[in-house]
Design a protein around this nucleic acid. Sequence first.
DNA 1: GAGTGGTCTAGACCACCGG
DNA 2: CGGTGGTCTAGACCACTCT
Lengths: 249, 249
Amino acid sequence: MSTSSPARQQSEPKYWHLKTVLAQALDTEFSVGQTLPNERELAARFGVARATLRQALDQLELEGRLQRRRGVGTTVAPPRVGVDVSPGRHAGPAAEGGAWEAVDCAGSVPAAAVARDLGLPAGRPVRTVHRVLLAEGQPVATEQLYLSPGLVPAPGAAQERGPGPERARAVLDRLRTVPWDGQDRAVELGSAGAEDARLLDRLPGSPVLIVTTRYTAAGRTAAVAVATYRADTCRLTFGDREALTLTAG
Amino acid sequence: MSTSSPARQQSEPKYWHLKTVLAQALDTEFSVGQTLPNERELAARFGVARATLRQALDQLELEGRLQRRRGVGTTVAPPRVGVDVSPGRHAGPAAEGGAWEAVDCAGSVPAAAVARDLGLPAGRPVRTVHRVLLAEGQPVATEQLYLSPGLVPAPGAAQERGPGPERARAVLDRLRTVPWDGQDRAVELGSAGAEDARLLDRLPGSPVLIVTTRYTAAGRTAAVAVATYRADTCRLTFGDREALTLTAG
DNA sequence: GAGTGGTCTAGACCACCGG
DNA sequence: CGGTGGTCTAGACCACTCT
């Protein structure tokens, strides 16, 4: 890192250098949860425009090192929480650990790609279970579980009238009786929609990890789960590494 | 989308609405590979400042719908390519599909977290194999494979003198003879460092998916791979879904 | 109401790519 | 060289949270 090294690349952006300096400061001069000086003061201290400082903060937030809340301030984020997303051989969508909390069950129109996976025409509503994953008391993921028609019997009048969470749990119970063949998963980067952002206590457009799981039963895709994880606070784990199973790490 | 809907949320940001409009235009009026009007013209056309337009484009690029190249322009991106990252029971780090290309083998200092996984003191260099994953002719991921000392014998003088790729392949060959117990993986969001960005043909700071794999042999972590995937162009798949195995999907 | 981060503007200049 | 996206500025106002 000596400045005397010859023929360095031309013009390192200010925000990049700023990010490096800030990252080092976070390691040495701040502790988790501590509040940083406000953006206007930081910008002045470093002699840059606020927009430039924000570019550096944006990246640090993306890497999960900072947490910003409007009206409150910027704090040093704790290490990302590990969330186990292992396939688990013949487990169905309702067989996850106990941290998922059923929210509601209703009909909704899946995205075109999901409808295709289910072998249905686009635009048609299907029974959908909505769940939220809590880690350390905070919601870190939301999931929409789209069910193939006829997978579970139509709900009785009793459950249909009940409150949302109760209806959802009733459907999940029935899903446990389905003989599942297997599943496959995909992870990609996305940005939170308005609804997901609200549930995750983030701003719309925040980066999220989207996990799409296809569950197969009787030789075809019978359910598709689209889970949206906060990218700033979550690390998805596959395998037996230290992940939150019941209590937090 | 009717504006007459009552009690909508207060003040939708301009860039958010802009993103929605652009996303729809991409679906209906543009085809993959097509070049969009330049940013100054788009901003003028929508009656916003260029910075605001760029905020919308940033999100669309994050979602993998656009591809921007300095000095060239903004084009409509093809669908993300699926990359299989399935664990594969007792496979070692050298047992992947044929798309990985060995680049070099040298000594390097792993990050503190990696050193801890390997049971080594921080700051100590270890033998490291560097690989690049090509998909459709383009590099989409880079990987540093950190090896526990003593895992493979010191290289003979012949390989030590050879060019980088040859040295790397020689080490990978030796790794295939190691009896591996298993592995576990974690996926998280990060931003590309200067070196990774160069190899992936991206700007520093670009969002990447970081896959950390720990390989165990003889009951302990004997190798750690840190792979960096372009988040804009890659979808990581676990399972038997349509992923690129030999040729592209 | 005071203070924070989020949005937005209208410019300027720079780095890079292609012809 | 001209045109593109990338960086940067110095402001302004807004939405939100807390007191």
